[in-house]
Simulated assay, not measured.
Amino acid sequence: MHRPAVIALHYQNDILHPDGLIRVGLSEDDQKRTQLLVAAKKMLDGARAHGWPIIHVRVAYRHDYADLIQNAPILKSVANIGAVKEGSWGSDFYQALAPREDCFNEHVVTHKRINPFYDTQLCVLLRGLNIERVLIAGVATHSVVESTARHAVDCGFHVTVAADACASASSESHNHSLNSMRLIAEVSDVQSTLEALK
Rank of each mutant, 00 (worst) to 15 (best):
F117P: 13
M1H: 07
Q12A: 09
V139R: 05
I184F: 14
G46L: 00
R23A: 01
L135Q: 00
A49R: 14
Y94C: 11
L21T: 03
V139L: 15
L122E: 00
D64S: 10
G51S: 08
W52D: 09
E146D: 10
I55C: 03
V108A: 00
C166T: 00
S177C: 10
N80V: 01
Q95C: 05
R58S: 03
N179G: 03
Q31S: 12
R133I: 00
D92Y: 05
V57P: 13
A167V: 09
D92P: 13
V159F: 12
L122W: 09
R150C: 03
E132R: 14
L21S: 07
R48Y: 03
V57Y: 06
D119W: 05
N130T: 04
R133K: 14
V24I: 11
Q12W: 11
K85M: 14
Y11W: 08
G46V: 01
T110S: 12
D164I: 02
Q70H: 07
A40R: 04
D30K: 07
L125D: 05
T34G: 13
G46E: 01
S91W: 08
D154L: 10
E186Q: 14
K112F: 04
D14G: 02
M181E: 02
Q121R: 15
L44H: 02
V190P: 14
G20V: 02
Q191S: 10
K32C: 05
I22L: 15
I69Q: 01
L16I: 15
I136D: 00
Q70L: 10
V109N: 10
C166P: 09
H50M: 08
G20C: 03
L9G: 08
V57A: 06
H56F: 06
I69E: 00
E195P: 03
A169G: 12
I15W: 11
D30E: 06
D92T: 06
V153T: 08
V78K: 03
P53K: 06
V6R: 11
P73R: 12
I114M: 14
G87K: 11
S188W: 12
L197A: 13
G25S: 04
A169V: 02
D30C: 05
C123I: 04
L135H: 01
N115D: 14
R23K: 06
S173C: 09
V109P: 11
S170C: 05
S168D: 09
L36W: 07
V124G: 07
T141C: 08
D67F: 07
S91Y: 11
W89I: 06
A149E: 01
P4I: 04
E132G: 12
T110Q: 07
I22Q: 01
D92A: 15
L75K: 15
L9V: 05
S171H: 01
R3A: 02
R127T: 06
I55L: 11
I114T: 14
R58P: 01
A8F: 05
S188R: 14
I131C: 06
A96D: 14
T160Y: 13
R100A: 01
K112M: 04
A152K: 11
P116C: 04
L68D: 03
S170K: 11
E106R: 15
I15E: 01
A8Y: 06
I22F: 07
A149Q: 02
C103M: 13
I131F: 07
I131H: 00
A196F: 14
V161E: 02
K198I: 04
